[in-house]
Write a protein that binds this DNA or RNA. Sequence first.
DNA 1: AAGGCGGGGCT
DNA 2: AGCCCAGCCTT
Length: 363
Amino acid sequence: MSEMPTPVLEPTLFQQRLLAWYDRAGRHDLPWQCQRTPYRVWVSEIMLQQTQVTTVIPYFERFMARFPTLGALAEATQDEVLHLWTGLGYYARGRNLHKAARQVVAEHGGELPVASLEAMAELPGIGRSTAGAIIAQSTGQRAVILDGNVKRSLARLHAVEGWPGRPVVERQLWALAEHYTPEQRVADYTQAVMDLGATLCRRGTPECSRCPFADVCVAHFRGEERRFPESKPKKALPTRTTLMLVLRDAEGRVLLEQRPPSGLWGGLWGLPQFDDLAALRGWLDVHAPGAAIDPAWPAFSHTFSHFRLDITPQPARIGRLDAVGEARCWYDPGNPERIGLAAPVKALLASLAPFALAAPAGP
DNA sequence: AAGGCGGGGCT
DNA sequence: AGCCCAGCCTT
């Protein structure tokens, strides 16, 4: 428990405040809140994964009308189940629900094993949080939940740093959720803690003025509600490498090529690009025989939305070269033409003194 | 147009 | 263990 952040309130105080708010302002008439059977709560919890309450309600009603009991669901075909799922998305949820219903009939006598968190979490589509939610809401046994709403509220309340997808962060949040969960009124508590995140402690625009925890919330105290929970780190962009040939003639002009009309830098002018030095040499042998290759300049990188390009400028010299062929031109860095240049090429060319043959400072 | 979301499957 | 995915919705 040493990995738990310092709680902002004693559990009993936390529960009192939350339940008082819930009694006053929470949601009490959701379809799965009447006849809170394990089956109905289960179906609602699966539908509520990744999906908001207002979207779920009509699907839940139709589903219950067609499959009023777990047995009815188990006897249905997968096609019937998926038909009722159409439009809800994440269809694996529907397939797992159906599979789990048959598993419950086969292995648990047709009753959800709500006495055991572990047995519940072994059913397909039910993980730790969903198992806790079903147990707490349908039996009133103490069980802990940690869905996205609860994660957000707890992360703000305690200013928990780090993306909740990281195991260390998730462990802290589970420890807090565990700490605050009561023994009494567990079903209401569970609904309340989810309602708080869904209706008040929203992702974009939290309504702190109505929050029963505004006076103890660390993120609110710092004015940093929006910073918590931290978002998933952007994955490192894949890196590609390329050689760019900086072929200069005796007057210091640089050979450019026009790129294909579509794709990256489509239609722009750029330096001839090669995957490796051998390819560059082969190209010079054909198009600029007699060119002298100089030591490469320091690489620099250019970042696109979807990858990073490491560019190594490869200088070379040739005395004179008249016929450069189609879609090529000699470009005078000291007297630039008005043509479209890819950004890193433009920077590279701008760094070239008209007759400098040594490495430039770089773009 | 981008990012969030709970669990499962794959590496 | 960590990464990636699913599909719709909100921002």
